[in-house]
């Protein structure tokens, strides 16, 4: 990473002001691949903030990308509220059982205390350590699962889907209590010197309709983003799958940057909302970053650059979603190199 003239914070600040930069910002969204960088098992991250920080800082130093994100899985807040998470020895954790098995138990749920419950304290510790070590040169963020998606982990995805039609009031209660946890966790992340990084998989139009998004997800997202803005931080919002029909709503929610994946088109996003939000995306995390050769990565990255480098509100080259744990290092490096070599004048 010695090849970059600017540090990520300098680069992002200059880019935001429209000043000269050495290269476009680039974020191959490294999650548990960081375990491979320091040769530990993914399961070792459980309850070990210092190890998460060590891995994420080492991954940043190895590849030189523009944002560090403290992340192990999407379930940390739901777990802190009572969901059961399974931790395989060396793979990403997954939801074993929702927090409640019967929607009628919704009143039993309490918002999480990020300083006490589940793995949240360890994630906060990881953020503090990363900020302490490299926070003067690179933004450190903490992954935060948004209200609607967190609600799906509290009651189970299929149950939540049915409740939207049968008992919308309960869905709102689940989102409201998830939002309550989000507020507390977002405040704690910011207090740790980091920035919340929002992710909302279940809000995708691959799962729910744009109308349902407006009813069950947007109001809570908007309040969450207002809250984070109130603490002086800008917000990146990631939603996977199909999103074209909710880009307007994502902007309306207040996102400063929207991160989209491969079921969405950067060119279309640029034309639709590019004058109001920064875009981030969308090299295919599995087909290209995991399974592709270096040349495939180069081609896919260039294609993203050509599509969106001139986005009016800016563009961050990124993978469409978190990278699979076993994404090869040379592919991550190829993505970075392609961005380093890309000159806007070449176009």
């Amino acid at each position: 990473m010695g090849t970059d003239a600017m540090k990520p914070l300098e680069r992002l600040a200059a880019y935001g002001k429209g000043e000269a930069i050495d290269r476009l910002p680039c974020v191959p969204i490294v999650g548990n691949t960081a375990a491979r960088v320091i040769g530990v098992k993914v399961g070792d991250f459980r309850g070990n903030g210092p190890l998460i920080a060590q891995a994420q800082v080492a991954a940043y130093r190895k590849f030189g990308y523009d944002v560090i994100r403290i992340f192990t899985d999407l379930y940390t807040q739901a777990e802190a509220m009572g969901a059961k998470v399974h931790y395989p020895a060396d793979e990403t954790a997954y939801l074993e059982a929702p927090a409640i098995s019967d929607p009628a138990e919704v009143q039993r749920l309490q918002p999480a205390d990020p300083y006490r419950d589940g793995n949240l304290p360890h994630h906060l510790e990881a953020m503090r350590i990363a900020v302490d070590q490299v926070g003067n040169e690179v933004p450190v963020t903490g992954a935060l699962t948004c209200p609607f998606t967190n609600a799906s982990f509290l009651v189970g995805a299929e149950t939540l889907a049915r409740l939207m039609l049968k008992d919308p009031e309960t869905v709102h209660r689940l989102c409201e209590i998830s939002l309550d946890t989000n507020f507390r966790y977002a405040a704690a992340i910011i207090e740790a010197g980091a920035t919340p990084s929002l992710t909302d998989a279940m809000s995708s139009s691959t799962v729910i309709s744009p109308r349902q998004f407006k009813e069950f997800s947007l109001p809570y997202l908007k309040r969450l983003i207002d809250f984070i803005h109130g603490k002086g931080k800008s917000v990146t919002l990631h939603i996977c799958g199909k999103t074209a029909k909710i880009w307007e709503s994502m902007v309306e929610a207040g996102a400063d940057c929207i991160s989209i994946d491969n079921d969405a088109s950067l060119i279309e996003a640029k034309l639709a909302v590019g004058n109001r939000v920064r875009l981030m995306g969308n090299v295919h995390p599995s087909a290209v970053m995991l399974q592709g050769a270096v040349e495939d990565v180069r081609r896919a990255t260039l294609s993203c650059l050509r599509e969106a480098h001139d986005n009016p509100k800016g563009f961050i080259v990124a993978s469409g979603c978190s990278l699979p744990t076993e994404a090869p290092f040379e592919n991550i490096e190829a993505m970075m190199e392609t961005v380093r070599n890309f000159k806007v004048e070449d176009q």
């Binding site: 299929e158 889907a161 049915r162 939207m164 039609l165 049968k166 139009s205 799962v207 729910i208 309709s209 349902q212």
Partner: peptide, 13 residues
């Protein structure tokens, strides 16, 4: 894209 996963689940019920 008139129906989404919630509707499809309810139809199957």
């Amino acid at each position: 894209e008139e129906y989404f996963i919630p509707e499809l689940l309810m139809c199957s019920d």
